[in-house]
Design a protein around this nucleic acid. Structure first.
Lengths: 205, 205
DNA sequence: TAAAAATACGAGCAACGACTCGTATTAGCA
DNA sequence: TGCTAATACGAGTCGTTGCTCGTATTTTTA
C-alpha cells in the first residue's frame, strides 16, 4: 500500500529557477498584452527565448503557468504591502491612511500590469479563479483589519459590505491608474483618493 | 468609373431578421458565459438552432457578430436611458438624480449580462474596441450634460475627469450588482449610490 | 407558375494552438 | 572521469475553431 506515485522529488537547479522566472516574466507580458485566452504558450516560450518543450518542463499546462504567475504576484504583493497594511495608529487622519495604503498598491499595479490583466480577465476557468483567491483574500482581510481597528463597533455584515465595495470602487479606477501617463498620475491618483475618502469618511473618518 | 463593388443590396426577409435576432441572442448568452475569445461561432450557431453556414450568411465573421451585438445593446441602452438621461431640473436633490439615472442602468445591466461581459473583455481586438466606443460615448456625454447643467462654471478638464471617474467607479461595482441575488440587490444598490453621492456632492451637490 | 433571390444546411478545409516525445546538451556528484 | 538527472530543443500530433462551399429549400417577384 505504499504510495509509489507520491512525488518524483525533482531537484531544481539554479538554471531551472532562472528559466522559470524568465518564463513567468514572458507570460506576464503576453497575458497583459493579449489576455489569458488569446495568449499562446508557444508565443510565451518564444518571448522567453525558450522552446515549447522547455516551458512544459516547468509547467504542466497553461493553467498552471497562470497559477504560478499569480502565486508570484501574491508573494510580491505581500512584500510590497507588508508595511502599508500593518497596524496603523487608529487616530491617523483618513487621508493619510488612504495615502499610506493606496500609494504602494498603485505603484505595484502600474509596475505589474499582468497582475490586473489576469485578475480582471473574465474568460477564466475555475482553476484560475481558485488561484486568484489568495490575492483577493489578502486584500480583503487586510482592509478588514484596518477598518475594524478604526470602527470597532461596526456590525460584521456592514464591515464586509464596506470592504467589498471599497475594493470594487478602487478596482474600477485601476484601468485609469494603469493607463495614466506619468504626468497625469498625481491628478488621477488624487481624484481616486478623494472618492474613497468621501465614501469611507462616515464610517471610519 | 462606376463603383460596381458598391453594395449587393440584399433584401432581408422577415425570416432573416428573426434569425439574426436569434443568433444575437445566442451570441449574448455564450459571450456572457465564456467571454469573447473562448466562445466558438459553431457553439453560438448551435445555441441558436442554426448551422455555421447560416450564421455566416448574416455576419461576415466573429468580429462583426460581436459588433452587431454591441450595436443592438447601444440601441436598447438609448431607449432605456432616454428619459433617465434627459434634461433634469437642476434643483433636483442629488440623491434623487442618482436614483433616476442609476436605476435604469442597473436594471439594464442585470437584464443584459452579455453587455458588460463584452465591454469588460480585455482580450478584444481594435475593431471591437471601436464597436464599444458608441456605448462609452453615450454614457460619457449624457453624464457630462447633466453635470454641466448642475455646475455651469466647472472647468472642462475637471468636468471630464469627474465624468470619467464616475463611470469607472460605477463600473467597478457592476460585477457586484450583476451577481447580486434579488434579495441583496437593494442593499448593494444603496451602497453604490451612497458612494457616488459622496463623491459627487462637493461638485454638483 | 417559373425564375430569381434569400435562407438553410453541414461536411469539411486550413490554420492554429496546447501539448508530447525522442534526442541532445549541461550540470551535479561519486 | 564516468554516471545520473536536470535542462533544452523543436518537429510533430491531435484536437479545436473560424469559416467556406456545394447544394437544397423556402419566399418573393414577374
Amino acid at each position: 500500500m505504499t504510495e509509489d506515485t507520491a512525488k518524483p522529488v525533482r531537484k531544481r537547479q539554479a538554471r531551472g529557477e532562472k528559466r522559470m522566472a524568465e518564463l513567468l516574466d514572458a507570460a506576464a507580458e503576453v497575458f497583459a498584452e493579449q489576455g489569458f485566452a488569446k495568449a499562446s504558450t508557444n508565443a510565451i516560450a518564444a518571448r522567453a527565448g525558450a522552446s515549447p518543450g522547455t516551458l512544459y518542463q516547468f509547467f504542466k499546462n497553461k493553467q498552471e503557468l497562470a497559477e504560478a504567475l499569480m502565486a508570484r504576484y501574491v508573494e510580491r504583493l505581500e512584500a510590497a504591502h507588508g508595511e502599508a497594511f500593518a497596524p496603523q495608529d487608529p487616530r491617523l487622519p483618513l487621508p493619510h491612511l488612504v495615502d499610506r495604503v493606496l500609494d504602494p498598491i498603485i505603484a505595484f499595479d502600474r509596475a505589474n500590469p499582468g497582475f490586473h490583466a489576469l485578475l480582471a480577465d473574465p474568460g477564466v476557468t475555475p482553476e484560475l479563479a481558485e488561484a486568484k483567491r489568495p490575492a483577493q483574500q489578502l486584500m480583503f482581510s487586510s482592509l478588514e483589519a484596518i477598518f475594524l481597528q478604526r470602527a470597532p463597533g461596526i456590525p460584521p455584515a456592514r464591515l464586509a459590505l464596506t470592504v467589498t465595495m471599497t475594493i470594487h470602487l478602487f478596482r474600477g479606477t485601476l484601468p485609469l491608474l494603469i493607463a495614466a501617463e506619468e504626468k497625469d498620475l498625481p491628478l488621477t491618483t488624487m481624484e481616486v483618493k478623494r472618492a474613497l475618502i468621501a465614501y469611507l469618511a462616515p464610517l471610519i473618518g
